[in-house]
Lab assay of single mutants.
Amino acid sequence: QLNEKPLPEGWEMRFTVDGIPYFVDHNRRTTTYIDPRTGKSALDNGPQIAYVRD
C-alpha cells in the first residue's frame, strides 16, 4: 500500500519494470527504494539504481 502523503519538494515516485516503487531525489540526483515520507523500503536492503533524467 502506497503512502498518500505528498512527497517532499524535488522528489518523485517511479516504478521499475517489475512494478516496484522507487523514489527519485532530483535535488541530490539520487534514487532510493526508501520512501522519504516513512523511512520504509520497498525492498529489503535494495540497491540504489541509476539516476535517469528525462
Rank of each mutant, 00 (worst) to 15 (best):
F23I: 00
V52K: 12
P36R: 00
D35R: 03
N45K: 08
N27D: 14
L2H: 09
L43I: 13
D54R: 05
Y33C: 03
R53D: 15
R37N: 09
I20K: 09
P6V: 12
Q1W: 01
N45I: 06
P47R: 12
Y51F: 07
E12V: 05
Y22R: 01
D18R: 09
P8Y: 02
P6I: 12
L7C: 05
Q1A: 07
T16S: 09
S41C: 08
A50G: 11
Q1N: 06
N3K: 07
T30N: 02
V17L: 10
P6K: 11
S41A: 12
T38R: 08
R37Y: 00
R53C: 06
V52M: 15
R29V: 04
W11F: 06
W11D: 02
K40L: 11
H26R: 07
Y33W: 04
Y51G: 14
R28C: 08
L43D: 15
V52W: 06
S41Y: 07
R29S: 11
D44W: 08
G19T: 07
R53Q: 10
N27W: 05
H26F: 04
Y51C: 14
N45E: 10
R29A: 08
E4C: 08
G39S: 12
D44F: 10
R29F: 10
D25A: 01
E4S: 11
P36Y: 00
I34D: 08
L43Y: 11
T38W: 05
G39D: 15
K40E: 12
D18G: 08
R29N: 10
R28W: 04
T30I: 15
Y51D: 15
D54N: 06
R53L: 07
Q48E: 13
Y22V: 04
E12R: 03
P36A: 00
S41R: 08
E9I: 06
T38A: 13
T30F: 15
N27K: 13
F23G: 00
G39Q: 13
W11E: 02
I49T: 15
F15S: 12
P21Y: 06
Q48R: 10
A50V: 07
V24Q: 04
H26A: 06
T31D: 02
K5C: 14
G10I: 00
D18I: 05
G46T: 12
E12T: 06
A50T: 15
T31S: 07
R28Y: 08
R14L: 10
R29Y: 06
E4F: 11
T30M: 15
A42C: 11
L2W: 03
S41M: 12
L43P: 14
Y33V: 03
N27Q: 08
R53M: 07
I34P: 00
Y22N: 00
N27F: 05
N27V: 11
V17W: 05
D25M: 02
L2F: 09
I20R: 10
L2S: 10
I20N: 06
M13L: 10
R28H: 15
D54C: 01
K40A: 14
A50P: 14
N45M: 10
G10Q: 07
H26D: 03
G46A: 08
R28T: 14
I20F: 06
A42M: 11
D54S: 08
Y22A: 00
P21G: 08
G46C: 08
I49F: 07
W11T: 07
A50L: 06
P36L: 00
